[in-house]
Every structure is written in structure tokens, then in C-alpha cells.
Simulated scan of single mutants.
Amino acid sequence: MIAALPMYDWPEVQDVWDRFWALIRDGFREEGIDAPDTLDREVGMWEAWESPDLLLGQTCGLPYRTRLHGKVAVLGTPDFGLPDAPGGYYYSQVVTRIDEPGDFADFADKVLAINGFDSQSGWGSMQNTAAAEGFGFSRIFVSGAHIESARAVAEGRADIAAIDGVSWRLLEEHRPEIASRLRIIRRTETTPGLPMITAPGNDAARMAHAVEHAIAALAPADRARIGLRGFETIPAEAYLAVRTPPLPDQIDQHG
């Protein structure tokens, strides 16, 4: 069995995620669902998402709509309480260096840092926001993680990045030496957040019930530390309706 919740599992808040998992685990067991004692922090994301042994995972909207829809069952979507976003939805903060002038469109020919091409928050939302203004990014630095995208911009190896709003909140609190060197230009489009998933054949409804109870039982101070507000049901159609930007034919891939 695999249980992995890596999306916002930063070292500074791993103790919170461990306590949250313990509540979920105990709830699963009360429902007669076997569950591992601890979260797996070694398994790769795609390995977990596509495994028939996946008990509980969390994916991103872009992988869900492009590869996982119909191959996993969705429990629900955690609500991290981002300002001006509906429950369970999120957006990214578009950032550049604090001393870098210009508005969003001025960066059309600059280097975009992304965590990966399978990221809604770092790649999909950024390209869709750019497309709405009549351009697209083609000079790409692939960093591997939101924090590394932020670091690349701060250090001048890239010029602009879209940082998942929850990750940006963590960055401001726990890595101020990076966040303080950046300025927010704008937000990207708002899209459905990161759903919790399980392998087909598992009882997603009973599992969702246990997760809801775990969120309610989590200490208020712990909920505040990770910004967790609730658990939302977002229909698959809302995820599938989001545009998936094509990869450029040729990418000046700096990373």
C-alpha cells in the first residue's frame, strides 16, 4: 500500500502532515480499510499515482486531466483557503526579481522557470494566462520544484515564474531569504486545486468521509500552519474543462 501526500510536505511542516496522516490512517482503519503506519516520502509521484497499490495520493489538475482521469478515483480536493478563490480552487503568484521592471506582457520573450511540464500551477496556468494576452513562453528553465523556480528567478537564472499560491505562502513564511528578493506581478487564472486520489477499486466514498473527519479533528494550530480549511467535492468536468497548453515545437530549455 502507498500513502503519499508530497505536494506541500515541506520539511518545516512535515510534523503537521504526519499528524494529519495519523488521523486519516486511524479513520481508514475504523472504516475497515487497511492503511500503512506512515507516509511514503521516497516513492516518485508518477510511480505512486499509477500504482495499483495506491491507497492515498494527491495529484495536480494537469496530470489528472491528461493521464489519470478514468484510471484513478477522486476522493475530493483539500481547500487551502487562498484569498479570492472558491473552496478547493487555487491560482499561482507570478513573480520576478524585486528590482526587475515590467508588467506581465513585458516578459513574453524572457526565461520562464517551471517546476515541470506536468504542472498546472507552474506551466499550464502560466501558458493559459499568457495565451489570454496573446502570447506564450518558449524560453524555459525546468527547475523541478516551485521553490527551485523561485530560487532561479531570485538568482537571475530565469526571469519569471508562476508559484502555486500555497507554495508561495510557505515560501514567504519559511524561506524569506528567497521570497524577499521577488515581487508579485499578478495572479494566474484560478483553477480546481490538487485532488486526493486512490487506485480504482478502493472505496473512495468511505475514504473521503475519513479524510473529512481527519481535517475536522486536526488541531487548529496545525490547520493554520498548512492553511488547510476543508475538503471540497469538485466534479471531474471542472478539471477536464481547463485548457492544456501544447508544448512549443522548439523550446529553448535552459534548465
Rank of each mutant, 00 (worst) to 15 (best):
G227K: 04
A205F: 11
I215F: 05
R157Q: 14
L182A: 13
R157C: 09
I178K: 07
E212Y: 01
R187F: 01
A179W: 02
R223E: 09
V211L: 14
I163K: 06
L170C: 08
A179Q: 04
T198E: 02
A162I: 06
D222C: 14
R186T: 14
I185M: 10
I226V: 15
G156D: 05
N202K: 07
D159A: 12
N202I: 02
L218Y: 07
V166K: 07
G165A: 15
I178S: 09
A219W: 10
E212M: 11
T191Q: 08
E189I: 00
D222Q: 13
A199R: 06
M196G: 01
T190G: 04
H174Y: 15
S167C: 08
R186C: 11
I197S: 05
A217Q: 12
E173Y: 08
D222T: 07
T198K: 00
R186I: 02
A158I: 00
R187K: 13
I226P: 01
P192N: 09
S167F: 03
I160R: 00
A217G: 09
P176R: 08
P195L: 09
L171K: 02
R187G: 10
D222P: 10
M196L: 12
E173S: 15
A208D: 08
A161V: 10
D203N: 12
E212N: 10
G201L: 04
A210C: 12
T198L: 00
A219F: 09
L194V: 01
R206G: 13
L194C: 14
I215Q: 03
V211P: 03
V166F: 03
S180G: 09
L182M: 13
E173I: 14
G201E: 10
R175M: 15
A219L: 14
R206L: 13
L171R: 04
A199T: 11
G227N: 12
H209W: 13
S180C: 02
T188N: 01
E172I: 15
H174I: 14
A219C: 07
G193E: 09
I226G: 06
I160Y: 03
S180P: 02
V166H: 01
A208E: 08
S167G: 02
P195G: 11
A179S: 11
G156W: 08
T191I: 14
L218H: 05
L170V: 01
G201F: 04
D203Y: 06
S167Y: 00
G227F: 09
G156A: 08
A162F: 02
V166R: 05
A199N: 12
P220A: 05
T198Q: 00
L194E: 11
G193P: 08
E173R: 15
P220R: 01
A214Y: 05
T190C: 10
T191S: 11
R157P: 13
W168G: 00
A216N: 11
R169I: 03
R187L: 01
R186S: 09
A161W: 04
I215S: 08
A205D: 15
W168D: 03
R169Q: 14
T191G: 01
P220H: 06
D222S: 15
D222L: 14
I178H: 07
E173C: 10
R223F: 10
H209S: 15
G227S: 12
G193A: 06
D203F: 04
P176F: 12
T191D: 02
I215L: 07
D222F: 15
D164H: 15
P176H: 12
R169E: 12
R225W: 05
T188H: 03
P176Q: 09
P195H: 08
D203W: 04
R186H: 05
R225S: 14
T198Y: 00
P220Q: 05
